[in-house]
Design a protein around this nucleic acid. Structure first.
Lengths: 191, 191
DNA sequence: CTTACTTCCTAGAGCCTCTAGGAAGGAAGG
DNA sequence: CCTTCCTTCCTAGAGGCTCTAGGAAGTAAG
């Protein structure tokens, strides 16, 4: 007589991550999750506070995974090598895990998450790479914002079906990284 | 005895736009819209096909408005003037109308919208500005994608509460536009 | 005045979140 | 072994959402 389904928060979040990648973030519902575990929706509220809570946990999982991928990619590299490795790791992760990636882009109040170390590490990874270009504050922050924006914007538009043009997105991406590299090398030299 | 509420599709879309800007795009629901017009939800389905249809119409409205703003801003300008005017018009519109802006970023199947002229005009506006920098295909498409990505990424992160750093976003934005201008001027010169 | 179309209605199915209160599994102490 | 307590699951139910079906009452045109 199996009376306990053996549900854990980690298991829920992992399942939610798979569901997000399969059908989009908004297919991650408490109902669907409960169905997947063969349990009533109400039962899940002993493990998570609410849907919002579930999605924040998902964002933390995805951000951590993404940091790991980027960290591994840039390790031991500098300059353009590091930039391209960073950018490709970012894009590859997002394209392979669109639902998880979307979760990282939700508005999250720092107050509602206990451990914000993940977010700090993301900033450090970016700034570490930029320091290789000789950047210092406040340019470091400015350039970091520019890069994050460009990467995110690119992936977001690509995932949402923009870029319907005939030219392969990968080629535009490579060309853009060239240009960004050039931009970072000359960061100090503009008016 | 007022039996007809005088509802039109245009009126619905305009009201939806206001609701989106006030409380976010996902607060645009058929129920809420019906409530606002003092009518039952089911009644609205004589005017719109479904929620999806409503949001697509909203996207078209917003895209048109945004094109108008950008078009007016770049008129008679070229080079850096045009770039900054374009970028500021883009950002100003998005910050003033976050819900409308979010609507423009939905995945929209070209098949489901009758008039795609709005989207073409957006591409033309971008490419017109880039031609001022002497760009030709395929660089025109590459640079266009880079710019759209950067603008969108910037606004999206700003709207979602990223950039929580102390440095004013407006200053980073101005600095980034400087850098992008420099990048476009030297577009042909990298490896 | 009749006919036909449009705009609104009620009813209801189906999906969702979330709360309240209860029962049964499992561990720990007497 | 048995009681106690916490955890995990349940049923019931409120309330919000989308959307369909079918009907009635305005409105316009022949």
């Amino acid at each position: 007589m199996v009376r306990r389904a053996g549900i854990t928060v980690d298991g829920l979040v992992r399942a939610a991550a798979e569901m997000a990648d399969e059908g989009g973030l908004d297919r991650v519902t408490v109902s669907a999750l409960a169905r997947r575990f063969g349990v009533k929706d109400a039962s899940l509220y002993s493990h998570i506070r609410n849907l919002r809570d579930l999605r924040v946990r998902l964002a933390l999982l995805a951000s951590g995974e993404m940091n790991d991928a980027i960290g591994a990619a840039v390790a031991g590299r500098s300059g353009k090598d590091a930039l391209v490795a960073f950018a490709d790791a970012y894009r590859d992760y997002a394209l392979a895990h669109p639902g998880r990636y979307a979760a990282t882009q939700q508005r999250i109040d720092p107050a509602e998450v206990a451990d914000t170390a993940v977010f700090l590490r993301a900033v450090e990874l970016t700034q570490g790479m930029l320091r290789g270009y000789g950047l210092r504050e406040p340019g470091l922050t400015d350039a970091g914002r520019l890069l994050r924006s460009t990467f995110h914007g690119y992936i977001h538009i690509e995932l949402s079906g923009g870029f319907a043009h005939s030219r392969p997105v990968a080629e535009s991406w490579a060309r853009s990284l060239d240009a960004l590299h050039h931009l970072l090398e000359n960061w100090g030299n503009e008016s």
